[in-house]
Deep mutational scan, measured.
Amino acid sequence: MQNSHSGVNQLGGVFVNGRPLPDSTRQKIVELAHSGARPCDISRILQVSNGCVSKILGRYYETGSIRPRAIGGSKPRVATPEVVSKIAQYKRECPSIFAWEIRDRLLSEGVCTNDNIPSVSSINRVLRNLASEKQQMGADGMYDKLRMLNGQTGSWGTRPGWYPGTSVPGQPTQDGCQQQEGGGENTNSISSNGEDSDEAQMRLQLKRKLQRNRTSFTQEQIEALEKEFERTHYPDVFARERLAAKIDLPEARIQVWFSNRRAKWRREEKLRNQRRQASNTPSHIPISSSFSTSVYQPIPQPTTPVSSFTSGSMLGRTDTALTNTYSALPPMPSFTMANNLPMQPPVPSQTSSYSCMLPTSPSVNGRSYDTYTPPHMQTHMNSQPMGTSGTTSTGLISPGVSVPVQVPGSEPDMSQYWPRLQ
């Protein structure tokens, strides 16, 4: 039975679970980093996980050691009161100082060594604690504590007292930064006198190289990059290397530039699409467009005044059976039934097929058609009795279509119309 579990990581490298990497692998990681390889490249070359490479390099940059820390136990506290007071002093002298600059000053002034120097995250935590204590304490208590930490007896009751030896409130920041720059020169002199001055200088240079600022491109470089971006948004590694040799930039910087440029292009394309949609959409909808001609068919113009009344309900007709019959029939052209047409008796099958359309009241044959006459024609229609054979009435077949029909004066039988409509 094995005491430890061995495995293979996602890159194909072998590791022992819970145990640190061998010293030979750690040394190779540092050597590759000094030669300029990126952590992701080191991870692929040595088949070590990216997190492990970053952790080893980060500890090497901070402490200069590649040895693993002790497994188990607690780390001794490195942010001692003396170190905290120095950090507060540096922050007062130059409020814009960075944590890694404070760390360098602690090393250069001999406050800490490589073994007990606090990390950048520890210094940031100390600065946050100082800021929170400043908010919790009152103004007087804060000034007393700062005077105690600074070891001075001057008056701290006013704002300019934060910067000793100065009279203009805006000047101390520059003086403090100048003092810090002077301390940086002392850093070089002190570290050069040490035993491991060369190694420390190499480590600091490598650290500065990794902690780079934003790349500033010249106009020629920007023009070359934009020209390549117009050709393709995704250049391959050969195109990037050719462009890197042409404009004297690292291939990694060119790759990052193209990634950022593609993101910018997507944002601009989104804005262009929004403007295009806004320009195509009308600002207001016309009133006429809300009524579609496919839904509402136009009603033909009436030929006679009587045809303006298109349904039985508008003429005072309360018989719903006839109203439904007229509205359900398709529109037909106007025609006239003459008196000489043969009077065919209704076929029983045809009569039964339209039995649902006729009223059940037996008085329908005896009703006159003056009910369908509009009010303004009552006088004219009353002067001509319906009993004469020459009287013409208008029957409504569908809305908007008038059918003048000659009705025999002897017997106005409704059943004569249905064979004609089939």
Rank of each mutant, 00 (worst) to 15 (best):
V78P: 00
N17K: 00
I71T: 07
P20A: 10
E133D: 09
Q135L: 12
M142P: 08
T113D: 09
Y60G: 02
V78F: 04
Y143A: 11
W100R: 04
P81F: 09
V8P: 04
C112R: 12
S6Q: 07
V83I: 15
S85L: 14
A79E: 01
G12Q: 02
V126H: 02
K134R: 12
R147P: 07
G72E: 00
I56S: 03
S24V: 12
S54N: 15
P81Y: 15
L11Q: 08
G36H: 06
I42T: 04
D144A: 11
T80I: 09
A88G: 15
E62F: 06
F15T: 03
R125I: 00
I71E: 00
I29M: 06
E133P: 13
E93G: 11
S35L: 06
V111M: 15
R67I: 05
N50L: 15
L149D: 06
I71C: 05
S65V: 07
L149G: 12
S119M: 02
C94G: 13
S85T: 12
G73E: 01
G141N: 10
E31D: 09
L127I: 12
E101W: 07
M137N: 12
L146C: 14
R125S: 00
T80D: 01
E109W: 11
S132P: 12
P81A: 10
A70T: 13
R105H: 08
D115K: 05
G110C: 10
S74C: 04
G7P: 15
R67E: 13
Y90G: 03
D115E: 11
A79I: 07
N114Q: 13
G141Y: 11
R103P: 03
A37K: 06
G72D: 01
Y90Q: 13
L106K: 03
P68F: 00
K145A: 06
N116S: 13
L107R: 07
Q27E: 14
I45Q: 07
N17D: 03
A88L: 11
S108M: 12
D23R: 10
G36E: 05
R19L: 05
G7R: 04
R59E: 02
R38H: 02
I117T: 06
C52F: 03
G58S: 03
S85R: 10
N17F: 00
L107V: 13
G51F: 02
Y60F: 07
L21W: 00
N116E: 07
P68K: 00
G13E: 02
G7C: 06
M137R: 08
R92Q: 08
K55A: 02
I66Q: 05
V8N: 06
K86N: 11
I56L: 15
V14G: 07
D115H: 04
T113W: 09
Q136V: 13
Y60R: 01
G51K: 06
V8S: 04
R105Y: 13
V14Q: 11
S65A: 07
Y60M: 04
Q135W: 14
S85P: 05
V120I: 15
G18D: 01
L57T: 00
R69I: 04
A99R: 03
R105Q: 13
K86M: 11
N116T: 14
Y143Q: 12
V14P: 14
V8Q: 07
D104C: 12
I87E: 03
M148H: 04
G7T: 14
R125K: 00
W100G: 05
P81M: 08
M137I: 11
Q10H: 08
K75V: 08
K75I: 08
K75Y: 06
Q2W: 14
I42Y: 02
K28I: 08
V83C: 14
Y143R: 09
R69H: 15
G18L: 01
E62S: 09
I66G: 03
Q136E: 15
W100Q: 07
S119D: 04
A131K: 04
C52N: 02
L107Q: 06
R147S: 10
V14E: 09
P39M: 15
R103F: 04
Y143S: 10
C112D: 15
R77V: 04
A131H: 08
C112H: 15
P22D: 05
V48E: 00
G64M: 08
I56Y: 04
C94Y: 13
D144G: 08
S4K: 07
P39G: 04
P22L: 06
K134H: 08
T63E: 15
V8G: 01
K134V: 13
D140S: 10
N3V: 09
V8L: 12
R77Y: 05
L46A: 05
A37M: 08
D140E: 14
S49F: 04
V83E: 01
E82F: 09
E82A: 09
V84N: 07
Y143P: 08
I71M: 07
L11G: 02
E31H: 11
P22I: 05
K75H: 07
I71V: 09
Y90N: 08
R59N: 05
A79Y: 03
T80N: 05
L130Q: 10
L146F: 13
R128S: 08
R105T: 11
A88K: 07
S54D: 01
V78W: 01
R92Y: 05
E133F: 13
N9I: 01
Q89P: 03
R103I: 15
D140C: 10
I42K: 01
S43N: 03
S4Y: 11
E82T: 07
Q89N: 08
I102M: 08
D140A: 10
E109M: 07
K28L: 07
G58K: 00
S108K: 12
E101P: 02
S74K: 02
L127C: 13
L46C: 11
S24P: 15
R67F: 15
G141R: 12
I45D: 15
E31P: 03
I71W: 04
N17S: 05
N50R: 15
K145H: 06
F15R: 05
M142E: 09
N150Q: 15
S4M: 12
Y60I: 00
C94K: 12
T113Y: 07
E109T: 14
D23Y: 07
G13W: 02
R69L: 10
R92T: 05
K86S: 11
P39S: 08
L106N: 02
I123S: 01
I42F: 01
K28S: 09
R59P: 01
L32Q: 05
